[in-house]
């Protein structure tokens, strides 16, 4: 992460910085692999509490472009964390990535302004497209 930030300050141009929140290390790894190949920088957090700490760290509040979060996690769960992010960082677009194919929940999240509700296993292309859409939204928010 420190490297990521340094690289960015060093003038290294990436497509953006994405925070991935999931309690499973291998899920985070898979998302990281997909996104890094698509030219994004990735930081990780294993639960809502760590995610909040991560967002507040250093330059992250300014640099962070997109948050991808699971909703079923220990400690502060994803729903609580998402509410927190929406209040504190309303300009950072959010994507839910979950194992629950729950229409009702998905509709609820989308109404609240979440960019996408993705269900695992999600195809690589779909995830990248969703992050790209979120990036566009982020750019609009910045204007």
């Amino acid at each position: 992460m420190a490297e990521t930030t340094a690289a960015m300050f060093g003038g290294h141009k990436t497509n953006g910085l994405v925070l991935v929140v999931d309690d499973e290390p291998d899920v985070r790894k898979v998302v990281r692999m997909t996104l890094e190949k698509a030219g994004y920088d990735v930081i990780e957090a294993e639960d809502g509490e760590k995610a909040i700490q991560e967002v507040q760290k250093g330059e992250n509040p300014l640099m962070l472009d997109v948050i991808i979060s699971d909703i079923r996690m220990p400690k502060i769960n994803g729903v609580e964390a998402i509410n927190y992010f929406q209040q504190q960082y309303p300009r950072v677009p959010l994507i839910v990535l979950t194992g629950f194919p729950d229409m009702e929940m998905a509709t609820g999240f989308l109404k609240k302004g979440i960019v996408d509700y993705l269900v695992k296993p999600v195809e690589k292309e779909k995830l990248i497209k969703s992050v790209a859409t979120a990036m566009e939204k982020r750019d609009l928010n910045r204007l």
Partner: peptide, 16 residues
């Protein structure tokens, strides 16, 4: 839904 969640996580890892 609990079963779906617990299967979808490892399934995602396997596929990816």
């Amino acid at each position: 839904s609990g079963i779906a969640h617990d299967i979808n996580n490892p399934l995602y890892i396997i596929l990816a």
